[in-house]
């Protein structure tokens, strides 16, 4: 085993990086918190259009961090689970934004055209796919893995953050066995009920962020 990364310079680099990220315009200072206003953002979609969170005030918004080459994302697309969630949500008037924060030349990074091809090939049904190669939206939400999921209510408050479901695995057979956190949260939100599990552990692949220092 190599020497512990405690000895690497990364730790110090990281602190510098945090400060840089915080200084970016439009990025909230605090970490996102359930019950508080969701961090605002403005991103460019694979449709070539700008998408601002503020545009969707009055609607429920789901944010899905994705990387199509990540095996955890693969589990939810190959099983059809993610597409089913997207279709259910958008049919009910919910805005579903898939967000790609992989930096250029890293796993999951795609051009706008490739993103659109992926949506078609996988029969996915997001409202839009946001391209976030600089990781600005991802860092604002403190998104760490793919898939990492967030739900924002009609008033702009963050009401859910965490995993898509309860079983940390890449095994398709686990999808029906897992507690579907996002599906349950959307159901409870629509029924005006409190969300039973509003903060859960996300699992998946590390988001391939651009180093910030």
């Amino acid at each position: 085993m190599s020497s512990s990364p405690i000895f690497t310079r990364r730790g110090t680099l990281l602190m510098g990086a945090g400060a840089t990220a915080l200084a970016l315009p439009g990025v909230a200072f605090a970490k996102p918190q359930v019950g508080a206003a969701a961090p605002t953002f403005s991103g460019v979609g694979s449709d070539g259009k700008p998408h601002r969170l503020a545009d969707y005030r009055g609607k429920t918004v789901v944010l899905e961090w994705t990387n199509h080459e990540c095996p955890y994302v693969g589990k939810h697309y190959r099983s059809g689970n993610m597409q089913a969630l997207q279709k259910d949500a958008t049919a009910g008037g919910i805005i579903w934004l898939s967000i790609i924060s992989s930096m250029p030349d890293s796993q999951g990074y795609v051009s706008a055209a490739q993103a659109n091809d992926l949506t078609k090939a996988r029969k996915a049904a997001p409202s839009a796919v946001l391209l976030d190669p600089d990781g600005v939206i991802g860092r604002a939400y403190d998104a760490r893995v793919t898939p990492h999921m967030y739900i924002i209510d009609a008033k702009g408050a963050l009401v859910y953050m965490g995993g898509i479901d309860s079983i940390r695995s890449t095994d398709l057979d686990d999808v029906p066995k897992a507690k579907p956190f996002v599906k349950d949260a959307l159901k409870q939100l629509a029924a005006g009920q409190p969300i039973a599990s509003a903060v859960t552990q996300a699992y998946g692949c590390t988001i391939k962020y651009k180093p910030t220092a």
Partner: peptide, 21 residues
């Protein structure tokens, strides 16, 4: 399990092993 390493990738930290485990 042996003692883990802290694996920091652009600020996201995992615990694991390199080499032989």
């Amino acid at each position: 399990w042996p003692v883990p390493e802290r694996i920091d990738i652009a600020g996201i930290v995992s615990y694991g092993f390199h080499g032989e485990v």
